[in-house]
C-alpha cells in the first residue's frame, strides 16, 4: 500500500487476519540461537580442555554469566523498542551492569600476569574467538532480522537494530565460552566485548534506514 493508491476502501479490501507480535517468539528465537551456538561450538571446536575444573572453580560460570546478563538486558530492551507504544526502562540495564561488574571484579581478582598485555598476544586464539563471535553473531542477526525485526515498528529503529546486534553476538559469545579457555579479563574485554560491540555497530549502520517504517 502506497500513498499513490491510498483510499480507505483499498485498505479495507487488503485486510487479512494477523497474529499480534508475541514476545514468546523472541524468547524462543533467542533460546534456539543460544542452543545452536552451543551445539556449533561443541561440535566444531569441542569443550574447553579444562571444562570440569573451570565449572568447579566458577570460571566458566562468571565468563558465560557476563554475556548471558548482557543478553538478558539486550533482550528486554529489544522487546520494549519493538512496538511504538513501549520504551525501555532504566532497570533493563541492571543485568548488563551486573555483567560489567563481574568483568571489573575480575580485573581486581586476577593476578598481574592474567591481565597483562601479553594475554592479548595470543593471536591464533584471538582470531578464532573474534571470527566465531562475529560471524556467528551475524548469522544470528540475520535470523533475528527475518523472524523478528522486520515485523517490528520501533520509534527508535537505529537503537533497536544496534541492541539486536548486542543481543545476538552476546548469545554467541556465551556459547563460544564453552570452548575458549582464555579467561583473562583483559582478553575478554578486548576480543569478546569488542566483537559484541562490532556487531552492535553493524546493526546500527544497516538498521538506521532499513527498519524505518
Amino acid at each position: 500500500m502506497t500513498k499513490e493508491n491510498f483510499s480507505i476502501d483499498s485498505l479495507v479490501d487488503n485486510l487479512t487476519p494477523v497474529s499480534p507480535l508475541k514476545n514468546a517468539r523472541l524468547y524462543i528465537l533467542c533460546s534456539v540461537m543460544l542452543m545452536a551456538g552451543a551445539f556449533f561450538t561443541i561440535s566444531t571446536f569441542g569443550l574447553r580442555v579444562d571444562f570440569a575444573e573451570s565449572l568447579y572453580n566458577g570460571t566458566l560460570v562468571w565468563k558465560i554469566g557476563i554475556f548471558v546478563l548482557l543478553a538478558i538486558s539486550a533482550f528486554m530492551v529489544v522487546l520494549s523498542l519493538s512496538r511504538p507504544d513501549t520504551k525501555p526502562e532504566k532497570w533493563h540495564a541492571v543485568p548488563a551492569l551486573l555483567g560489567l561488574g563481574i568483568l571489573i571484579w575480575q580485573f581486581y581478582a586476577q593476578d598481574a600476569d592474567m591481565i597483562s598485555i601479553n594475554r592479548l598476544m595470543m593471536f591464533s586464539y584471538a582470531i578464532q574467538c573474534i571470527t566465531t563471535i562475529t560471524i556467528g553473531g551475524l548469522v544470528a542477526y540475520f535470523l533475528m532480522w527475518k523472524f523478528w525485526l522486520v515485523k517490528t515498528a520501533s520509534t527508535k529503529p537505529a537503537r533497536l537494530a544496534m541492541v539486536s546486534g548486542f543481543l545476538t553476538s552476546s548469545l554467541m559469545a556465551a556459547a563460544y565460552s564453552l570452548h575458549c579457555n582464555q579467561d583473562s579479563a583483559l582478553y575478554i574485554l578486548v576480543y569478546y566485548v569488542g566483537s559484541v560491540a562490532v556487531i552492535g555497530l553493524f546493526g546500527r549502520l544497516i538498521g538506521a534506514h532499513t527498519l524505518k517504517w
Partner: peptide, 9 residues
Amino acid sequence: IAFHTKKET
C-alpha cells in the same frame, strides 16, 4: 498506511 502495515505490533 503505517497502521495498516504495522498493526501486528
